[in-house]
Design a protein around this nucleic acid. Structure first.
Lengths: 365, 365
DNA sequence: CTGAAAGCGCTTACAG
DNA sequence: CTGAAAGCGCTTACAG
C-alpha cells in the first residue's frame, strides 16, 4: 500500500493571492533565473541588481515556495528526527537543541516517534521519510545495518545522537565511562553490594546505552575486585515506574544492596519512591546514584552523573549541516559527563565490616 | 530578507534511481492521470485497473513525491506545532498525542519552538511556516488577533491547544475550574492562609493558563469568604527552579502560609525542595497542591489536579483533520481535570484556631 | 472509465 | 552578468 491516503485538503482561501517569484521578476524588470540566483546569493549577479531584487522581494513580502524549490532543486529543506518516547527529558532536550541548530540554517524539523518494535519494523518497511527530508537524526536508537541501508538507499543522510556507530556520524556520551563514574563513586564511599537498576527500552536493542551502562557497571566492580552478584542486577521497562518496580524486586531479595546505580534519574526517582514506601532511609541505609542530571535531580537532591542532551542535539544539527553541505563532519568525540554528588549517596552502614579505610580500597580514604 | 539561506545541499547519490509515477503508469499500461486517481482511491477508476495499478506500485515500491503532489495539488501534507519550551512534560505530551493522531492520516509533523518574546515577534513577522504546512497547532500560546491574522492570511488553518479562543478551534482544560478544585481541597481541609505560587511564562501573555489559574484561586477563596492576602501571591519564571525561588520568597514573609497552591507539578516540586531545605515538614506544617499529575507527582506523593495533555494533543489532531477535510470541527468542551489526593496535603496545624468543623466552613466536616 | 495536456513555482544548464 | 527554456513529478479540468 504505497499511497498515503490523506483526506482531501481544503485550504482556507488565502485572502491575498500568493506572490510568486515571477511577480518579483516582473516588478524588478529581470528574468526568473536572475531572481532565483539573487535571492539565494549565488555567484553571477551584480551587486546592484541583487540588492534591487531583494528590495523588491522584501517589499512584496515574498517567500519562496519550498515545494517548487524542492521539486526543481532536489532538496527538501527538511530534516527528520526519529525517536521513541518524546516526553522524556533526554529526548525532548535533544530535539530542542536540534531545532535550535536547524532553524537558523533555514531547515525545518520533522518529528517521527517510533513507538514500539512493531512500529519500528513498519517504519523501515514503508520509509515514510523518503523524499520528504534531506537527513534524519535518530535519537537513542541503534540502527541495524539493514535499517541504515534503507535510509541511505532512500537518499537521506543519517546522524545518530545518543548511540554509537561506525558507519554514520554520531554524537553521544561514553555510556561505559558514565556508568563507571557513578559506580566508582559508590565504591569509593566503601560500598560493595551495589545493585544495577537498568531499564529495558520499549524497542528492544534500541538503547545501546543500557548495554554500555551495564558494561561500565561490571567493569568498575571488576576493576575494584568486587564480584558481581547477579541477584543485584535487574532490568525493568517503563522509566520511573519501572524504577519503582525494579527497586521493589531488589527489596524482596535475600540480601539488600547497600547502594543502587540506576540507569537514569527518572529510574532513580522511581526507586526512591519504593525505598520511601518501604521505610528505608536514603542515603543512610541505601545510597542511590544515576545518570542524567535531570532538572528534578537537583530538586530531589539526587546524586547523579550529569550529561547535556541539548548540547548533543546541537552537535547533531551541526553534523547534519556538514553532511548537507558536503563538508567533512567534524568529529567531536564522546560528550563529557561528570559526577555531581548530592544527598542520596553516603558511606554504607556496615562500613566497619569492610576493609579499613585507606587499606587497598579503591579511592577509599 | 525574505529568502532563506540554506547551504547548498548535496544529497547522497541514491543507489537506486527514484521510481516515478510515470514508471508505474508505463508498467501498468495506463496513463499518468489514471495512476494518480487509482493510488488516491478517487472515483472514476474501475476496480480492476485500480487493483492492477496498486499491485504494480507496490511491486515497484513506489511512493509519491510529496513535493510534486503538493506543488500540483496545493496542499503540503504537513502540520506544524508551535510551542515554547519543548522539554516540558505538558508540551511534549501534547506533541506526542498530536503526532500519533497525524501519522495515520499521512500528515507529517513539523516542530517549531518559539523561545522568547523576541523570537515570537520575529516568527510572526517572517511567517516561516507559510507555504510549508496546511495547518498549525499552537500549544499553550494565546495568539493575539494580529498573530492569528498573519497565520490565516498565509492560508493555514489554526488550532489552539491549551488556550482558549473565540476565533479558532481550541482544546483545553478549564484552568479556572482546575485551580478551584485544588484550592477548594485546601479549604475543605481547613486552610485559610493559602498561597498562590504562580509561574510567569517566558513569553509574556503566552500562557492564558496562568491568569486563569489565578482567577480560579481568587474565586475559590472569595466564594469561601476568605480574603486574599496579596503577600501570599507570588509569581516566578522558570518552572521548578522558579517554584523553589518563589517558595523561598514566601518563606521570608512575615506570616507563613499554611498551604500552597502551585501553578504546576514542576513548580510544586521546586517548592518542595525549598521547604525541605528550610526544614519545614510537608504536609504537617505546610500543605502543597498543584496541577498536572506529572509522572513524578505520583513518585513524590504529590497531591495534584490531574490532566491529560496527550489526550489534548490527540483532540487537537482530530480538529486539524476536520479542518483539512472541510468538515465542521466537533466541539469537545473543556477537558476534564480531577483532584488526586496524595501525601502533600493535610489539615493545617492551627486547625483548632479556625471555625469549628461543620460550622459554616466550605465542605468542612 | 480513461487519456492528453496544461500547469503548479521553482532551479539549472546553456547561450549570449 | 543576464535571459530563455527545459524540466522537476505530480494533479486536475477537459475531452472523449
Amino acid at each position: 500500500m504505497p499511497a498515503t491516503s490523506r483526506p482531501p485538503v481544503r485550504k482556507p482561501s488565502p485572502p491575498v493571492p500568493e506572490v510568486r517569484m515571477a511577480d518579483v521578476a516582473e516588478r524588478a524588470g529581470v528574468s526568473l533565473g536572475t531572481v532565483s540566483r539573487a535571492l539565494r546569493g549565488l555567484e553571477g549577479v551584480s551587486a546592484g541588481t541583487r540588492d534591487r531584487i531583494r528590495a523588491v522581494a522584501a517589499e512584496l513580502d515574498y517567500v519562496v515556495n519550498p515545494q517548487a524549490a524542492a521539486l526543481a532543486g532536489r532538496s527538501t529543506g527538511r530534516v527528520a528526527v526519529v525517536l521513541h518516547d518524546l516526553p522524556t527529558w533526554y529526548c525532548s532536550s535533544v530535539v530542542l537543541g536540534l531545532e535550535r541548530q536547524m532553524r537558523p540554517a533555514g531547515l525545518d524539523l520533522l518529528v517521527r516517534c517510533v513507538d514500539d518494535p512493531h512500529d519500528r519494523i513498519e517504519f523501515f518497511a514503508t520509509m515514510p521519510l523518503r523524499r520528504k527530508v534531506d537527513a534524519v537524526v535518530v535519537v537513542a536508537i541503534a540502527l541495524t545495518p539493514v535499517e541504515l541501508g534503507r535510509l541511505t538507499d532512500a537518499g537521506v543522510h543519517v546522524v545518530a545522537a545518543g548511540s554509537h556507530s561506525h558507519s554514520v556520524p554520531c554524537v553521544a556520551i561514553d555510556d561505559v565511562l558514565a556508568a563507571q563514574q557513578a559506580v566508582n563513586h559508590l565504591l569509593q564511599l566503601g560500598h560493595r553490594r551495589i545493585a544495577l537498576l537498568n531499564t529495558v527500552a520499549a524497542s528492544d536493542r534500541a538503547w545501546q546505552a543500557q548495554r554500555d551502562r551495564e558494561t561500565g557497571y561490571r567493569t568498575a566492580l571488576e576493576t575494584a575486585g568486587v564480584p558481581v552478584d547477579e541477584d543485584l542486577v535487574v532490568s525493568w521497562s517503563g522509566g520511573s515506574r519501572g524504577g519503582a518496580q525494579g527497586m521493589d524486586r531488589l527489596l524482596s531479595g535475600r540480601r539488600l544492596p547497600s547502594a543502587v546505580f540506576a540507569f537514569s534519574d527518572e529510574v532513580a526517582l522511581g526507586a526512591l519512591r519504593s525505598l520511601r514506601r518501604a521505610g528505608i532511609e536514603v542515603p543512610r541505609q541505601i545510597s542511590v546514584v544515576s545518570i542524567d542530571d535531570h532538572p528534578l535531580a537537583e530538586l530531589t537532591d539526587l546524586t547523579t552523573v550529569g550529561q547535556d542532551p541539548e548540547a548533543l542535539g546541537i552537535a547533531a544539527g551541526a553534523a547534519v549541516l556538514d553532511l548537507l553541505a558536503g563538508r567533512p563532519v567534524r568529529e567531536t568525540g564522546p560528550f563529557p559527563t561528570r559526577l555531581i554528588v548530592r544527598g542520596t549517596t553516603a558511606p554504607p552502614l556496615d562500613r566497619g565490616v569492610g576493609p579499613a579505610p585507606g587499606r587497598g580500597w579503591p579511592g577509599g580514604r
